[in-house]
Design a protein around this nucleic acid. Structure first.
Lengths: 153, 153
DNA sequence: ATATAATGTTAGTTGCAGTTAACAAAAGGA
DNA sequence: TCCTTTTGTTAACTGCAACTAACATTATAT
């Protein structure tokens, strides 16, 4: 299990990859409001954990394991975000900020139960929803319906 | 704003006071699975923040401010616990563990909204509930109905 | 009353996650 | 091409929150 701090780094990397096609130290630092040396350290830490490939001055590439972890983290974030925004009615900005913090501490099981619940409450699973944090897609899922909201920050 | 770590200490102190009438270094250490030196440090840190009174080898007494903070932290824990247990249907043990972690990161506003929501969903506020994290009591509140569950761990 | 046990304190260390300052490498423009 | 800017790295330091080991104080039991 990597630290919450490292989870933030890998999540940010995944988002940058999706958004701009590549992952750069400076961009990570900007997005996370931290310094480049902090990013550098995190990179080697994630590398040691087999979550990305990297050589000095090279390009950062998430491994399959790293990518799966990033997806899982993002799914968790998304579901918490939707809960806060659409169930508790926090405004968008607050929901984002809060989801950012809260999700860091939840187990997979809790996230799954929350996901199920959100689906039920928002009546998004009227048909045959099989939402699961570990799956990438969900046919009737909130994630897909407002993806822009969730992935981009 | 004190750190999350210190919040845990002050919460534990408050619980110990309620349960046994006094607050001792060793008991805090046992309850929190940490060492006595860690507790000692936390005590002086909380003292510097005006949250408790203490002299070496003396008795720990929360100030009014400290007590209010502890109550607020516990209320937050309680409401998250109830949400997890009675809304998401986590079993009791899991709900406790998760609430312990999650609540640390939520703002007062979010906690209040969650409290309201839980009250609505569980239909506990059929009359004139005015649940508020900053108040000690809530006439129709989940906290009161299963207090034993929540305060004791 | 004093020896022993329990409790609390101090000093010094560790690991984590960030920082600044200085430097190295790569990329771009004249 | 070479100079400048941008990007990435390294080293050394900080603060936090834990730890262990050793010591001091207080409480208990005989």
């Amino acid at each position: 299990m990597i630290s919450k701090s490292l989870e933030e780094y890998i999540k940010t990397m995944y988002i940058l990859k999706k958004q701009s096609g590549n992952i750069r130290v400076t961009d990570i630092a900007n997005k996370m409001n931290c310094t480049k040396p902090s990013v550098n350290k995190a990179i080697y830490n994630l590398k040691d954990n087999g979550l990305l490939n990297y050589e000095s001055y090279g390009t950062i590439e998430l491994t399959e394991e790293g990518e799966n972890l990033a997806k899982k983290i993002l799914e968790a974030y998304d579901i918490v975000y939707v809960f806060l925004k659409d169930v508790l009615n926090l405004d968008e900005e607050d929901a984002k900020k809060e989801a950012e913090k809260i999700k860091l501490n939840m187990t997979d099981d809790t996230i799954n139960k929350l996901a199920k619940y959100v689906h039920e409450v928002l009546d998004l699973n009227s048909l045959d929803c099989d939402y699961d944090v570990n799956k990438e897609k969900c046919r009737c899922c909130v994630r897909r319906t407002s993806k822009k909201d969730m992935i981009s920050k």
